[in-house]
């Protein structure tokens, strides 16, 4: 910074930095809580006051991925000796890992729920952003009869809380057999995100001068080629920003996932709290499931962070 600063401004600057730090800490606190709980021994997870210093354990993750049942009696020393290290962690917690008749370890419901979440969120994001980009391009570049009304109609699909239509949707889905299917959720989430995606992408595409495509048209390309070769690379920032928001919405959706799915297509959000069920709630397992669930969004956002930052300030600076 080459700007000249007075002493007063410098003090003000320090106060500003300090406030930003405090706010950041407040925002990070719940995340720290989740991450730390997911590494705590079970008996420390609900202490008052909260335990801050502890020896981290991996046992919550072992429990998260395995199917367990309560031990009726302590394992025999032979059993304990024969068990691999991770199974001993479960024994230590007063539970045992459920095995099939042939001795194979039974997985908990978590991994398949997690994969379901990935399938549903990624597919619906690709569909919503893809269709949204095409639609936005059409609205941005061509004269569409009743453009304003149509755009308003598209936005109006977001003017009511989606969960209001949950019961009719449930009945319809049951009638057409979309209940508890991946496609059922993908269609729902795509529909939720589409209006948002159209509006956001229209803003970004409006900012791309139409001379770029016109130059490509004159240079011997078709409009479709011009769209893919010129408009899409220019819209990358907008697409990244839109994709992050759509992905987060689909990834975190809880209500419809809870109502529409129960086994085959169930996503992680309704599953994670359902583990409270058996015996006393094991908060460490819930925290570890939540922690792993946070990672994809964090990674996705991290990878696209440059685009996101550019996306947020897009159009604010006159080129």
């Amino acid at each position: 910074m080459a700007a000249v600063r007075t002493t007063g401004e410098r003090t003000l600057n320090r106060v500003a930095i300090a406030s930003v730090l405090i706010v950041t800490l407040i925002f990070l606190a719940p995340i720290y809580w989740i991450v730390s709980t997911s590494f705590k021994p079970r008996n420390l997870s609900t202490t008052i006051p909260p335990t801050v210093v502890f020896t981290p354990e991996i046992s919550p993750f072992v429990k998260l991925f395995t199917k367990r049942s309560q031990l009726r009696s302590a394992p025999t020393p032979e059993e304990y000796e024969a068990a691999p290290w991770w199974e001993r962690l479960v024994f230590d917690g007063g539970e045992k890992v459920v095995r099939s008749g042939r001795g194979e370890v039974q997985l908990s419901g978590y991994p398949s729920r997690f994969i379901n979440s990935l399938i549903v969120a990624i597919t619906s994001t690709v569909l919503a952003v893809g269709m949204g980009t095409f639609t936005a391009y059409g609205f941005s570049r061509f004269k569409v009869k009743g453009e304003g009304d149509l755009l308003f109609f598209i936005l109006s699909t977001r003017m009511l809380p989606p969960v209001v239509v949950a019961i009719p949707m449930f009945l319809m889905y049951r009638a057409v057999g979309l209940n508890d299917t991946h496609w059922g959720l993908i269609i729902l989430y795509t529909a939720f995100n589409l209006s948002f995606s159209v509006w956001l992408m229209k803003g970004f595409i409006d900012e791309i001068p139409k001379e770029y495509e016109e130059a490509a048209l004159v240079d011997g390309y078709t409009r479709m080629q011009a769209f893919f070769k010129v408009v899409l690379p220019e819209a990358a920032t907008g697409i990244a920003a839109t994709a992050v928001f759509c992905f987060i919405t689909a990834w975190n959706e809880y209500a419809f996932a809870l109502i529409m799915t129960n086994r085959r297509a169930q996503t992680a959000p309704p599953f994670i709290p359902s583990q409270v069920g058996s015996g006393l709630p094991d908060w460490t397992v819930i925290a570890s499931g939540t922690f792993l669930f946070l990672l994809p969004v964090a990674i996705f956002t991290f990878l696209l962070r440059n685009h996101l930052l550019r996306g947020m300030s897009f159009g604010a600076i006159r080129k």
Binding site: P209, E211, Y212, E214, A215, A216, V218, D219, V230, P233, E234, A236
Partner: peptide
């Protein structure tokens, strides 16, 4: 036909 635009319209990427 080729065209040169006032805004240059060079493809930034």
């Amino acid at each position: 036909i080729a065209m040169v635009f006032q805004s240059f319209s060079l493809y930034p990427h």
